[in-house]
């Protein structure tokens, strides 16, 4: 579904990605693992059309993404939920969600699905998004992506800055979403146990290069990965 081939990207003189290969198949959940500064966000921003790679190929459903705008990529069914959420702070929860399917009207079934997934949002329905807690904002961000009916949901560190119970709640919701809809997900994360519990495969990024790749169990058992990301070994 998503193919990334030999991707190079950076900011001016600073090169961040040095030839990254990655693929996500239909129905898969793939974890993108790496420390701060490994290049996860840059990679996901390239995928979503927010950052222009310096070299390499990106295809979604076989079609190249290079020439397409972020909006066109989103409409094609690839939705990024960035780590800073990027909600519309002046708009209410409801309005944020309604904008997720622009210019279509959001089906009420889709809204109900989001509130079933995140019951808290129903309580905050008329509240401005800028006044929500971090966890609630993340729920709105994921909900806004979902009402656009994405075929590939891309999450950039969804639990950053969330208290552990909220992070657990978010992953529980994502897991149930996955069981219900079989949606394809690419998720960048630093918290290994949580993400590996949901993902089939993982890719470990280190300083802009793929260092390890394998099934979730392989990665969880790999001594080097355990040492680096689980603090044990």
């Amino acid at each position: 579904m998503l193919e990334v081939r030999d991707l190079h990207a950076g900011y001016g003189e600073l090169a961040v990605l040095h030839g990254v290969d990655l693929s996500v198949g239909v129905g898969e959940v793939v974890a993108l693992i790496g420390a701060n500064g490994a290049g996860k966000t840059t990679l996901l921003r390239c995928v979503a059309g927010l950052h222009r790679p310096s070299a390499g190929a990106l295809t979604f459903d076989g079609a190249p993404l290079a020439a397409r705008s972020a909006a066109a990529i989103a409409r094609a069914g690839l939705r990024l939920v960035p780590s800073d959420r990027r909600l519309f702070p002046q708009l209410t929860v409801r309005e944020n969600l309604l904008l997720g399917a622009h210019p279509r009207r959001v089906a009420s079934a889709d809204l109900r699905r989001v509130t079933a997934l995140f019951p808290r949002l129903a309580e905050r329905w008329g509240q401005r998004a800028g006044t929500l807690s971090g966890g609630e904002q993340q729920m709105v961000a994921v909900g806004r992506a979902l009402v656009g009916r994405p075929r590939l949901l891309v999450l950039d560190e969804p639990t950053t800055g969330l208290a552990p119970p909220l992070a657990a709640e978010l992953y529980a919701a994502l897991a149930s979403l996955r069981t219900e809809t079989g949606i394809t997900v690419l998720v960048a994360e630093q918290q290994l146990p949580r993400v590996l519990a949901m993902a089939e495969r993982g890719i470990v990024l280190e300083r802009g290069r793929v260092r390890h790749r394998g099934s979730s169990t392989e990665l969880a058992d790999d001594p080097a990965v355990r040492r680096a990301y689980l603090g044990v070994g």
Partner: peptide, 10 residues
């Protein structure tokens, strides 16, 4: 409100 967020919403 946020142009980048708007682009991400399509």
């Amino acid at each position: 409100d946020d142009a980048e967020a708007a682009a991400l919403a399509g």
